[in-house]
Design a protein around this nucleic acid. Structure first.
Lengths: 211, 211
DNA sequence: AATCGAATGGGGGTTTTGCCCCTTTTTTCA
DNA sequence: TGAAAAAAGGGGCAAAACCCCCATTCGATT
C-alpha cells in the first residue's frame, strides 16, 4: 500500500508542481494539497485526509509552518513533518526542527533526494542532510541563552526600523524618551549591538520587521 | 507539433517539479532544464535546445534572470521569456520586463494559468495578469526620475548597512571621513532620506544589500 | 585658454545617539 | 505584608550623525 503524503505551501504553482512530483513516486500518493496551515488542519477532520508524511513550507499566511507543525505534533503525533523551504536562516530552521519536523529539505534538492527523504522518514522516522546535521550539532555547542524580548521591547524595535527619532518613537508609544532610551540600552546589551543599524539588521534577520 | 519550453531555476526541486508540470501540458514539451543563466546560455549552442519559451527565475547565482533575459533578447530575439518568481519587489519586476520578459507569473499561480500563459505567449507574444498590467501602468505615471547612484556611492551604501561608523567606513574605502559624509549627504538628498536607518531600508528594499 | 563639473576634502555648527550614573513607581511573589 | 524585581523616568557627557557652506584637484568640454 502506498504511503499518504500531504503538501502544504502557499505558492500554488509549487504546491501543484511538488504534488505532481510526489504522485510519480512509486511508494507514495498525494492525499492533500493545502495553501496554509489553517486549511491543512481543517482538512484533517476527515480521516482519509490524514497523511503519513507532510511536506511543509515554512512561510505561509494565516498559520505558518512552525506553528502548524507544533499543533500537528500535539494532535497527530504520528504524522511526520518534512520542512521544505526556500532559503531560510539558521534560527528559523532550528525553530522548525524544535517544533517537531523530522526532516528538512533545502531548495536545491533533486527529486531523487526528495523520494529518498520520504522513504527514510517513513522507515527510520527522520531524514537529515549533512548540512542540517551540522547545524543541529552546532546549535548544541552554541550558547543557547535564548535572549528573550519583552512585548514593549519588540514594539519599540519595530518603530526603531523607521526614520523616526527616539523622541518621535516615545510619542508614538506614549512613553518618556528616557524610557525608550532605556529599552534601547537594555536591548543593545542583551543582543550585543553597537548601534541602531545593528538593531535594524537584527530585527529584519529575525523576522521582527519586514523591510 | 509541440512548442519547446526551457525552465531556468536554481532551486533544483522547483526546476524539476515545474518541468514535470509543463511536460504534462498538451501543446508543450520540455527541452532544457538549467540551474542558472550561464548554464542556459551555454546550452543554446546546440540548436535543438533552443526553446520557444523560457520560464525563468530571477534570483539565480552566476547570471541572474534579468541579465540572462537581456542577453537572450540580443542573441535570440525570437525566444520569449516568462519570468517566474517567488515574491519580488516592484522595481525588480519592472527591471525584468524592461529587460524583455514577455510575461510575469507570481508565486500563487495555478497550473491552468501557467498553461494559459504559455499558450498566450506563443499566440499573442505576451501574457500579463491584472496585477502586472496595473504595475506597468503605474510605472508610467510615477515620476521615473530614475535616481542613479554612482559606483562609489553604492559601495558606501553597502558599508553603511553595517554597525561601522562613518569614520570606519572611510578607512575601509581609503577615503577621508569628510568624503564619506559628502556621499551620505548627496544620497540623502537624491533619495529623500532623513537618516541612516532610511538608507539601510532603501538599500535592502532595492537589492543593494542582502540582510 | 577658459569653463565646467565631477570627485575629494575641510570648518564649524546643531541634533541625535550611546552610555554611564541615578530615583520613583508599580508588580510580583515568597 | 514586606522585600525584591520589574518598569518607567531622569541628568549629564562624549561620540556620532546630520547639515550647512566652502576649497582644491583634475579631466572633459567648447
Amino acid at each position: 500500500m502506498k504511503h499518504k503524503v500531504a503538501v502544504v505551501d502557499d505558492h500554488t504553482l509549487l504546491l501543484e508542481a511538488i504534488g505532481g512530483l510526489v504522485s510519480d513516486f512509486e511508494n507514495f500518493e498525494v492525499v492533500c494539497l493545502c495553501k496554509n496551515g489553517q486549511e491543512f488542519l481543517n482538512k484533517l477532520k476527515i480521516p482519509s485526509n490524514i497523511p503519513d508524511v507532510v511536506l511543509m513550507d515554512i512561510n505561509m499566511p494565516l498559520l505558518d509552518g512552525i506553528e502548524t507543525t507544533a499543533i500537528l505534533k500535539e494532535q497527530f503525533p504520528k504524522v511526520k513533518v518534512v520542512a521544505l523551504s526556500v532559503e531560510e536562516n539558521e534560527k528559523t530552521i532550528l525553530k522548525m526542527l524544535r517544533a517537531g519536523a523530522k526532516g528538512y529539505l533545502m531548495k536545491d534538492t533533486k527529486k531523487e533526494i526528495l523520494e529518498e527523504a520520504l522513504n527514510q522518514v517513513i522507515e527510520k522516522g527522520y531524514y537529515h542532510t549533512n548540512t542540517i546535521s551540522k547545524l543541529l550539532i552546532g546549535s548544541l555547542t552554541k550558547d543557547e541563552t535564548e535572549v528573550e524580548l519583552k512585548e514593549r521591547e519588540v514594539a519599540f524595535i519595530k518603530h526603531a526600523c523607521t526614520e523616526m527619532t527616539y523622541k518621535e518613537i516615545a510619542e508614538k508609544m506614549f512613553l518618556s524618551p528616557k524610557t525608550i532610551e532605556g529599552y534601547r540600552d537594555s536591548i543593545y546589551e542583551k543582543l550585543h549591538l553597537k548601534n541602531r543599524i545593528g538593531l535594524v539588521l537584527y530585527a529584519i534577520r529575525n523576522g521582527l520587521f519586514e523591510p
